[in-house]
Design a protein around this nucleic acid. Structure first.
Length: 309
DNA sequence: CACTTGACCTGTCCGC
DNA sequence: TGCGGACAGGTCAAGT
């Protein structure tokens, strides 16, 4: 089983997909099999979700915000293994047979395998949303770390998590200078730990931390205080280039998965170091190795990326 | 406050 | 093929 891999580019890909598929739809029913995946009072669900219509799909860092016309929003964090899968059935299925009845099936929003949609909901389905037109949105999450929360739209940005978030790395107003300055708070951390810190810069996860550090020729264990100013410029440029390229490729999907069009979720085919341990660096031909930094699997070219101390 | 480690979960893979 | 342990793309809480 493979999964959606949600860092900024993956969540952005899901956002784009859902924007095509579910804007304008009206909620008819919702069910869940794991309270932590959807920790909401049933009164709120009945008053502000059922019967409400989707107005827009937005993203901040790795979080999706589905805004409703009821003044409430669904806030979704996919964490490690969350997926959102949309299915349209032309006819209501029998309770014992939830497979699509017609051939009109739409899939998207992060589901890694077309054929699997016939089996949803399955054992990793945590929340099922039914719309008024025989279509469904399934929140699947094998490891149960992810969550969906229904809350008043105006309260979202008062959440501690949102208030502490750093700027969007692709934001048009973020400058190289501000990017570098924000790291000062963590001058005694490794640069990798600081890159993963959502309060410094939002949306970077393990893949794009490794990829951008390779591109900028920075060893991930270098302490922030030892990273040269010029290297911060390079990291800023590299990070943005890597994120943009991944969004263009539809993000990273597990292993070799490429969708029917052959372009969505194909970023890992272009990765320079992530999961390439034992293979050659395309810049210098040295062998890529894997380390453990900030408690995470970390991939580097030991020749291109030399620790400064 | 800055920094690190373990916890939250399920599933898979790897070595004995 | 069985079993233990490490590991998986993210954040929190709790520790120093």
């Amino acid at each position: 089983m493979v999964h959606a891999m949600p860092e900024l580019p993956e969540v952005e890909t899901v956002r784009t997909g859902l924007s095509q598929l579910i804007v304008g739809k009206q909620f008819k029913a919702v069910s869940h099999d794991w309270p932590k995946s959807f920790p909401n009072a049933s009164s709120d669900v009945n008053l502000f979700l059922i019967g409400a219509t989707i107005e827009s799909i937005n993203r901040r860092a790795k979080v999706l915000v589905i805004e409703l016309n009821s003044g409430y929003s669904l806030v979704i964090h996919l964490k490690m293994t969350g997926q959102l899968v949309f299915i349209h059935r032309l006819q209501k299925p029998e309770i014992t047979d939830l497979r699509p009845i017609t051939s009109e099936i739409r899939f998207g929003a992060g589901h890694p395998n077309d054929s699997l949609i016939n089996e949803l909901p399955d054992k990793s389905t945590r929340v099922s949303f039914e719309f008024s037109d025989y279509s469904w949105l399934y929140f699947n999450d094998q490891r149960k770390f992810g969550w969906v929360r229904l809350m008043p739209t105006i309260e979202i940005f008062n959440l501690d998590f949102f208030k502490k978030l750093g700027p969007e790395p692709l934001g048009s107003d973020l400058t190289a200078e501000e990017f570098a300055v924000r790291f000062a708070r963590r001058k005694n951390s490794t640069i990798k730990a600081a890159l993963l810190d959502q309060t410094i810069i939002a949306g970077v996860g393990n893949i794009y931390a490794d990829e951008s550090l390779w591109a900028a020729k920075i060893h991930p264990e270098t302490l922030v205080r030892n990273v040269p100013a010029l290297a911060f410029n390079s990291l800023f440029t590299s990070l943005r280039a890597v994120l943009l390229m991944s969004i263009e490729k539809g993000g990273s999907s597990d292993r070799n998965y490429v969708n029917a069009e052959g372009k969505k979720g194909s970023y890992l085919a272009f990765a320079e170091v992530f999961r390439r341990e034992g293979e050659q660096c395309r810049r210098c031909s040295a062998t890529i190795i894997k380390l453990r930094v900030a408690g995470r699997g970390t991939h580097i070219c030991p020749t291109c990326q030399v620790k400064v101390s």
